[in-house]
Structures are given as C-alpha cells and as structure tokens.
Design a protein around this nucleic acid. Sequence first.
DNA 1: GTCTATATAGAGATAGAC
DNA 2: GTCTATCTCTATATAGAC
Lengths: 216, 216
Amino acid sequence: MTSSRRERILEAGETLMSQRGFHAVSMREIAREAGANLGSVTYHFGTKENLLAEIYARHTVPMNRRRMELLVEAERISDRRERLSAIIRAFVVPAFSASADSAGGGARFTRLRAILSMEGNETAGRIIADAFDETTHAFVEALGRCLPGADEAFITWRLHFLLGALYYTLVGGERINRLTAGRCDGNDQQAAIEQLVSATADSLACDGAAGNPRAA
Amino acid sequence: MTSSRRERILEAGETLMSQRGFHAVSMREIAREAGANLGSVTYHFGTKENLLAEIYARHTVPMNRRRMELLVEAERISDRRERLSAIIRAFVVPAFSASADSAGGGARFTRLRAILSMEGNETAGRIIADAFDETTHAFVEALGRCLPGADEAFITWRLHFLLGALYYTLVGGERINRLTAGRCDGNDQQAAIEQLVSATADSLACDGAAGNPRAA
DNA sequence: GTCTATATAGAGATAGAC
DNA sequence: GTCTATCTCTATATAGAC
C-alpha cells in the first residue's frame, strides 16, 4: 500500500478540525489521533495549511458530483412544488450523508466547512469559492426555472440562508435539545433535513413574502 | 479615569476575535491593536479566557433588554401577519445594530458569537446558554401566540434556522456579492434584515409547509 | 496602572538515522 | 515511509521595577 498512515492522518485532521477549527488543533494532536508520529505528518503534507488543502481536495469533487446527480433527477419532476422540494433536498442531503462515504460529502466535512468559513480561513475560502460556486449557480438557475417571476437576488439570498441554517444545525444541534428541554432532537439528521427542506421551500414559494417580487 | 486602556483592550479583543475567532488571535496582537502593553492586558484580565468572558458580559444584558423591548412593542400589533414580521424583526435588528452602541448588541458582537459557537468555545457556550436561552424562549412563545396550531418543535427549528442564517450572513456577506457578480450586496445590512425577516416569516406562516402541522 | 523582562510551555517545521 | 531529535519561533502567563 502507498500508505494507510496517510489516510489515517487525513481522517484525524478532518475529525479534529471539524470539531474545533484550524488553529485550536495542533499537528501533534493530529499525529497522536492518527496513531502516527509528527514527522510522518510533515513528511506527507509538509505544512498544516497543505494538510487542510488535501482534506478539502478529497471531498469537493465527489460532493459536487453527488449534488449535481440529485439535481438532474429533481429537475425531471413536473409538479412545481414537488420539484422545488426535490431541488432543495438535492442541495441538502449530500451535506448530511455519512462521513467519508462514497458520496464524498458527509456531515463531518460540512462541519469543517462551516467552522472554517466562520473563522475566515483563507486556504479554505479559496478552495470553496473555486469548488462550490459553479454548483451553487446551477442550483440558483434550477430554482429560477421552478419559480418564474422570482429574481436572482431573492433566490440567492434564500439559498444563502439555507446554507447558514445547515451549517449551524450541523454544529449546534445540542442547542435545539436544550431549548426544547429534550422534546426535540437537534442531532436527528433525518428530522433536520426535513425541517430545512420545508422551511426553505416555504421561504421561496410563499406568496405572502415581503421580499418576494411575485407578491407585488 | 479608572482606565481607558481597559476599554481599549476590550474593544481590540472583540474586534480581532470577531474576525478570526479565539485561537487565531494572540494576546500580543490584542495588546498591540489596543496600543497597550502585553503586561497591561494580563493585569486587567488575567487570562485570555477571562478577557473573552468580559467581552461577552458587557453585551449580553443590554442586547437582551433591547430584544425584549422590541418584542413587547411587536406584540401590541393586532394583525397577525404584521405581528409575525415585527416579532422576527425584534429578534434580528439588535443583532445588526451599530457596534458597541447603547443597545449593546451590534454586528461585531454577533459575529463573535457566530464564530465562537462554531468553534465550540466552552466559555462562550456557557455564557450564551445562560444569557440567551430565556430570551429565546420568550420569542418562541410570542411566535406561538401568533401561529395557533404550530407546535413548539416547528417554531424552534425555524428560529434556529434564522439564527444560523443571521450568523452566516454577518460573517460571509462577501459570498453573496461573489455569487451574484456584484448585482446584490451581502454587506448591505438593511437588505439583509429585510430578507431574513421575510424569509423567516414565510417559513413560519406558509400553509404549504411539509413540516408545518397546520397543513395537515 | 503600566511597563520591561522573563519563565515556561507548546507550536510548526526540518534533518537525518533507520 | 516512519521514526527520533532538534531548531526556531511564538504563545500565555508571571514577577517586579517604575
């Protein structure tokens, strides 16, 4: 094998950074978590920045591919309201799928993106802009075909809100449990997906919207 | 004076940490930004954790007070749809107000909360739970009175999404500009507030909602 | 209350043996 | 490809002069 260590280091880095961010995690900690030596980490990745870049690299392509596959399927639906939900679902589901699976998405990677985008990490920012903007445009356009009369700004804002809500849900699920005193589980991913999809569909399709040009 | 340095250090810490988080900012950097010496920082605050705690302390009370004032005003509105928007606005506006103003809220402090909640900072988490959960409950209840038939889980999820969207908008406004090639300004706070309010109102009030029990 | 100087620890990164 | 050992830098925090 080329190196199982290398894989384990990537995995360890992704796990730890997705929990606490970039700066709060040290190379030594990553090495320990991977059962490897510090020297081995720098041998494989050189710098900490580069380790992060490689963590991103192995996820972005498969994740975008999965999103686009689901988007194509969703666009085949003729009923507009059903299609709307399916498009949103195509955006959300890959972000929640089991970690490091063949779909390449995973809640863990999404958590990582959430934290690093908040921290303003430059390496991550550059990669994300390159890797995700094109896919995001495809979703804005698909939603536009679903909602004639809704303009680009309206759709982009709401897709932006969806991403923020998605990020926050993956990171702060505990808060829902606390606020509802356990009557509602913020870590139930299936429930989270359904809530995200229905909330976003309503925010896009509802005619009472002050921000919706179709209400004018 | 008791100390203008002390104030300047608090200000500097808040500014820097709201941009890059807790660990990426050093005490030295904060001292330099405040035009003070490192020794002066530890004299006033002891530890970095404690500096953070004091940054939070001076904002939480006035911010919650402002939210509650606006909530009381909103609840006087008789028209349900108007009242719904006003309640959401009462939640959102203090989070966007000019930084360090008399309302104690401010975009800068909200950015700080956003970043630290993503980083899983324990100090911040404890303070936030203590300081904000009670106010959040008041909003859930007010929304419940506005939406008979909507249950607690439905409302809590959507209020949670609002907070995530709000956080992400304050941190990642640039992304909107990039995605729309400048046709729409993510840093226009007035626009952001209007979009957040209308999107959330629709997500709560729309009858087509799959996640809305009133649709059943 | 503010500074200089320093103790102590931990970080990222490198060199070279195996 | 993996390890040990080490260089160099920076961090938080403290002690004590002013």
